[in-house]
């Protein structure tokens, strides 16, 4: 019982792990504009600072019920969850736009007008000053991502971009021409970059062919080496088994001959008795007769049978009325 319970708890934990790892933690603050004078316009035709959040995973995740805040006090561990939540702006449920497909971005207007819809926060960003922005999970306690935005000029953004040299993400200030609300930032469109890179650096496909053939060959050579060695070991083991069997037979034959000799010479057993014993043994061997039954069912069907299938024993419950 305890064992089953332990197994159940273990399975539940394992089921929760991927959900936790690939869910809310996939959201990252991606780009921020604090002073929006000539950029993105909201549904009401107004301009305000905005925060872009990216779903960095390859799966669909919903950002509803998460919280955005600019208040550092929300990080205070001494505050209870409800106290922290009071310092944050809720991303409401019930709007399909919060359901972000793989690598999709969403923009929230930091205009202090939550009555204008899902994509508006209850706080504003400070123009020309440093801004702290944090994204919290639905429990109001787990910090998903945070960034401190330096003072930005008009229409500039602070963006998270991929640095190919260091193979990591870093934050840089983007000039107004490179601001990309709702889209990947420069350096994030890696798929197109890869194709463009191959087109530029390998226009005839020679490098691709050499690399790919080398990989295909190395993969199959690995398999070749393994099965060559494994086949050799298996053959060796088979040969050793044969040798052991031959040795055992020889030993038995030797023992039998010694016993027969002793019997005939020292114990005075008649040769005819030996002949009879050997003949009986041969007969039993040839007719496959044996007198010891193990009580174990040794019948092996050639194909799968349903004779003991559990589902065959299941029947509809009889109706009681």
């Amino acid at each position: 019982m305890m064992k089953n319970r332990f197994l159940g708890i273990l399975l539940c934990c394992m089921a929760l792990l991927p959900a936790f790892g690939q869910g809310a933690f996939s959201f990252k603050i991606n780009e921020v504009v604090t002073s929006n004078a000539a950029g993105l316009v909201d549904e009401y035709g107004d301009r305000s600072g905005w925060i872009e959040i990216a779903n960095t995973s390859w799966g669909t995740n919903n950002i509803r019920s998460c919280y955005l805040t600019t208040n550092r006090a929300a990080l205070n561990p001494e505050l209870s969850a409800p106290e922290r939540i009071r310092l944050m702006s809720l991303i409401p449920k019930g709007d399909s736009r919060t359901n972000l497909t793989a690598k999709q971005n969403i923009v929230f207007f930091a205009d202090g007008h939550t009555n204008r819809g899902t994509l508006h926060t209850n706080f504003c960003l400070n123009v020309g000053e440093e801004n702290f922005i944090a994204l919290f999970d639905g429990n109001g306690v787990t910090l998903l991502d945070s960034v401190t935005v330096p003072p930005l000029a008009e229409n500039q953004s602070f963006a998270r971009v991929y640095n190919g040299a260091t193979e990591s993400y870093e934050w840089i200030v983007m000039e107004p021409d490179n601001v990309t609300p709702g889209s990947p930032n420069a350096g994030q469109g890696k798929v197109q970059d890869k194709i463009a890179e191959f087109k530029e650096k390998d226009p005839y496909g020679v490098a691709m062919s050499v690399m790919a053939m080398a990989i295909v060959f190395s993969c199959l050579i690995l398999l070749y080496v393994f099965f060559r060695l494994f086949g050799y070991i298996v053959s060796l083991m088979a040969a050793m088994t044969r040798v052991r069997a031959i040795r055992a037979i020889r030993n038995k034959a030797h023992q039998a001959s010694v016993m027969a000799k002793q019997g005939l010479e020292t114990k005075g057993i008649d040769m005819e008795v030996y002949m009879a014993v050997i003949a009986m043994a041969l007969k039993e061997y040839e007719e496959n007769v044996h007198d010891v039954e193990s009580n174990v069912l040794t019948l092996q069907p050639d194909e799968h049978t349903e004779w003991n299938a559990k589902d065959n024993a299941m029947r509809e419950w009889p109706k009681l009325y």
Binding site: P203, G205, M208, S209, I221
Partner: peptide
């Protein structure tokens, strides 16, 4: 039984990359 035949399977994949170069 004869794992060296794996290499023949690998060599034939050059058809893919030959065609890749021509397509480019």
């Amino acid at each position: 039984a004869n794992p060296k035949l794996l290499l023949v399977g690998a060599a034939a994949q050059f058809g893919i990359f030959g065609a890749y170069m021509i397509a480019l």
